[in-house]
C-alpha cells in the first residue's frame, strides 16, 4: 500500500539549516548535510532542501551543498529556492536533486511550469504555494511569504496542476512556526480539488498534528522543520505512532 510520507525540510541560509517563525527571526539549526544523512537513517521518507534566501538575494541555490547532501543520503530529495529556468533545473538535477520546487518564478511566469513539465516530466516538478489568509480569503504569497499577490490559493492550486505540476507543497504562512497544527481545512480543500499529491507544511508541533493532517487534512505527505531539527519529535517515534493509529507508513 502506498504510504503517507514524513518529510523533514532543511531551510538553508548561508549554508546552514535555519528555522524561523513566520519566515523571519531565523535561528541556526545545524549542518544540512549531517542533518539530511541523519534523517535518512532515522526513517525520513524524503527530504526538502529550500534555499530560503535565494529569491530575495537573487542568488542561485547552493549547488555544492546539494551535491554534498546527495552524496550522503539514499532517499529522494527536492531542492527549491531561486529556480527560474530550465537551465536552473538541469543544474540541480545534475547535482543530485531528484525533484525541484518552484514558487515565485511560477507565479511570475506560469508558463514555466508547462515548460519544465515537458522538459523533465511532471513527476520531478513541485510547485510550492505559500498561502496566507487575508481579508477573508486565502492568497498566494511570494518572496518567502513577504509579498502578497493578486492570486487566490485554491484556483492557483488547480492551475498549477493543469499546467503540469507533479506535486504541490502547500505552506500556510498563518500556521508556519506556530506549532499549533497544520492548516487542515485549507489543505483538505486543496487536496480534494486536486489529483496530484499535496505536501502539507507549516504548523507541526506534535505527533497528533500529523495524524490530523493525514485524516482531516487529506494530505499525502507532512513536512516539518523545527520539531525535527531541535529533536522535539523523533521520526521513528512519529511513524510508529501514526502506524498504530492506522496511517500507512514505511517503517
Amino acid at each position: 500500500m502506498l504510504t503517507k510520507r514524513i518529510i523533514p525540510c532543511l531551510d538553508i541560509k548561508d549554508g546552514r539549516t535555519v528555522k524561523g517563525t513566520n519566515f523571519v527571526d531565523l535561528r541556526d539549526a545545524g549542518d544540512p548535510v549531517e542533518l539530511g544523512a541523519l534523517y535518512a537513517q532515522e526513517g525520513a521518507d524524503e527530504l526538502v532542501f529550500l534555499d530560503i534566501t535565494a529569491t530575495v538575494d537573487d542568488r542561485k541555490t547552493l549547488v555544492n551543498l546539494v551535491r554534498e547532501v546527495a552524496r550522503h543520503v539514499n532517499i529522494p530529495f527536492t531542492v527549491g529556492g531561486g529556480i527560474s529556468s530550465i537551465q536552473d533545473v538541469s543544474v540541480l538535477l545534475n547535482a543530485g536533486a531528484d525533484k525541484v520546487s518552484i514558487n515565485s518564478s511560477a507565479v511570475r511566469n506560469p508558463d514555466l511550469i508547462d515548460e519544465l513539465a515537458l522538459q523533465f516530466g511532471s513527476q520531478c516538478i513541485i510547485v510550492a504555494i505559500d498561502t496566507r489568509w487575508v481579508d477573508g480569503t486565502d492568497w498566494v504569497h511570494t518572496h518567502g511569504g513577504r509579498k502578497i499577490t493578486e492570486i487566490q490559493t485554491i484556483p492557483w492550486a488547480k492551475e498549477v496542476e493543469n499546467r503540469g505540476a507533479g506535486e504541490i507543497l502547500l505552506t500556510s504562512m498563518d500556521a508556519d512556526g506556530t506549532k499549533a497544527g497544520f492548516a487542515n481545512a485549507l489543505t483538505a480543500t486543496v487536496s480534494s480539488n486536486s489529483s496530484i499529491p499535496i505536501i502539507a507544511s507549516g504548523g507541526a508541533g506534535s505527533m497528533e498534528h500529523f495524524y490530523e493532517v493525514f485524516t482531516e487534512g487529506k494530505a499525502d505527505a507532512g513536512l516539518a522543520a523545527s520539531i525535527f531539527h531541535f529533536k522535539e519529535i523523533a521520526i521513528l517515534d512519529l511513524k510508529n505512532y501514526l502506524a498504530s493509529k492506522g496511517i500507512p507508513m514505511r517503517i
Binding site: 500500500m1 504510504t3 529522494p76 499529491p197
Partner: peptide, 29 residues
C-alpha cells in the same frame, strides 16, 4: 491521485535475483 508518488511495497517473484537477501515484500520509492 496521479502520479503515483512515494514509498509502496512490492511483491517479488521468488526467483528474482535482484531481490536476493531482501524480504519478499519491500518498500521502494
Amino acid at each position: 491521485k496521479i502520479p503515483h508518488v512515494g514509498w509502496n511495497s512490492i511483491q517479488a517473484n521468488q526467483d528474482n535475483p535482484l531481490m536476493e537477501g531482501l524480504k519478499k515484500e519491500e518498500f521502494v520509492y
